[in-house]
């Protein structure tokens, strides 16, 4: 008699599936997951793990966490990151110390693989969540991540 029980089971499971989708159908007006993007530009918040572009956060007094170790530059598979660095005398200890002059990031070459951010020992660079990256001139996509006049935060090397 498995023939008829198969039919019964088939109908039952099909109806179960239909009740699930039917439930979605009824609640679609309130629960729609669609983002009507250009209209909700002001309120749209991308989720935290979204990979927009690499940025270097700065504190209020213009300090960043980059020590110029170049781990990110080495980790980058296609050379999107260039660091121009210099040595300067540390006024406290009197020793010469490495510091970054420009942290150059080519957004136009970046594949958003995230290896630089994983490689960074001091969490100096992070993902931003912006995605409106279109510009009229591609040279604008080459960005200097550290702000002018910024310096490394104390105690990062330790």
């Amino acid at each position: 008699m498995s023939y008829f029980s198969d039919i019964y089971k088939g109908i039952k499971t099909l109806l179960t599936g239909m009740s699930v989708t039917g439930n979605y159908f009824i609640h679609a007006r309130k629960g729609a997951i669609t983002q009507e993007y250009p209209d909700n530009r002001e309120t749209l918040k991308m989720f935290d793990r979204f990979r927009g572009e690499v940025v270097m956060p700065h504190t209020d007094d213009n300090r960043h966490r980059c020590t110029g170790c170049q781990s990110c530059e080495i980790a980058c598979p296609n050379g999107s990151i260039e660091i121009i660095w210099d040595r300067a005398v540390d006024p406290e200890t009197g020793k010469k110390k490495k510091k970054i002059d420009k942290h150059i990031y080519h957004l136009s070459m970046c594949t958003m693989c995230g290896l630089c951010i994983e490689a960074c020992p001091t969490d100096a660079i992070v993902w931003a969540q912006n995605f409106e990256n279109s510009v009229y001139d591609r040279s604008k996509l080459t960005k200097i991540l550290n702000q002018p006049g910024s310096s490394v935060l104390d105690g990062i090397e330790d």
Partner: peptide, 10 residues
Amino acid sequence: KVAAWFQLRI
């Protein structure tokens, strides 16, 4: 439209 509503779209 119906397909969209079944998939929680607009």
